[in-house]
Amino acid sequence: MAANTGTVVELVGSNEQTILPEWVDLQKKAGSLQTGRISEGELLSQSREFLHLLRDGLARGGTDASNPAYGPAKQLLADISRSRALQGFSPGETATFIFSLKQPLFNTLNRNTALSPAQASELTWSVTLLLDELGIFTLEVFQKSREEVIVRQQREIAELSTPVVKLWDGVLALPLIGTLDSQRTQVVMENLLQTIVETEAQIAIIDITGVPTVDTLTAQHLLKTVAAARLMGADCIISGIRPQIAQTMVHLGVELNVVSKATLADAFAVALDRTGRAVIKLRKTAAGSDKNLKPVEKGL
């Protein structure tokens, strides 16, 4: 076995000049360069470096991919796989990098006439096992990197989509965008309560214009938020329930026992009224120039 791997090491070492171009050609044929995410030079240098590390691994660790001698080669694979995952390569494209090495290696083995057929097939088998294992490793890293990206994006979305805005002294707005699950409700609730403490707000307007669907669970989450705000001494108004959502809610039998208004503007008017304020028009202006300054009617 040692002698066999020695042969492979020798073959890989002495035939680098034929293996490398063949390998890169195959990768190009498989479309690695078509997407334009990686340059030919980059591909060539990655391939060359991996081939060197693979040779070192073969020399010191045989064809057992779990041998620590393959550490550097695996590290390189992990780096390549991770960067490709971030660049948006598909799993297939990423796996091609390692699997397309098979053919050049086998060609080299076949060209070597010094090997008996039995030896050649044995070597082919062990090299196949090695490359398969490295390929699986590549895909695992790829998958993990993609999952990391997704987790990061989820976190960013959660942070971005839960702002608490101060509309006026004592009036807060909470424009919700996206689906409300229990995890996000928690974030929303914490943000809202913290801001209520900081701004001494009396009224919070929860605007759900950006919430695509309201089912019983979402409604429950909304009610929880409203209840928590009430415990802190702030009243909540829900605004921005779209017609279809209102219909769905009625059909589902969801009840929101909270003051609700169709638009944020209406809710704001109520909030001003409750805090003893009103928006008035100071003078007549050109039509339409300041629509939002029309006086608040009594009894809204």
């Binding site: 928690q186 609730m189 914490e190 309560l193 913290q194 209520i196 403490v197 001494e200 707000a201 009396q202 929880k224 209840a227 928590a228 705000a229 009430r230 415990l231 802190m232 001494g233 702030a234």
Partner: peptide
């Protein structure tokens, strides 16, 4: 009931106690 902390408010709501019969305010002044 005044001066409830955010964490306490969340806990009570999660426990299903929304204290509907109690009036609440942010601080003693209110």
């Amino acid at each position: 009931v005044v001066g409830m902390r955010p964490a306490v408010a969340i806990t009570l709501v999660e426990l299903g106690l929304s204290l509907t019969g109690v009036k609440t305010a942010l601080n003693v002044e209110r």
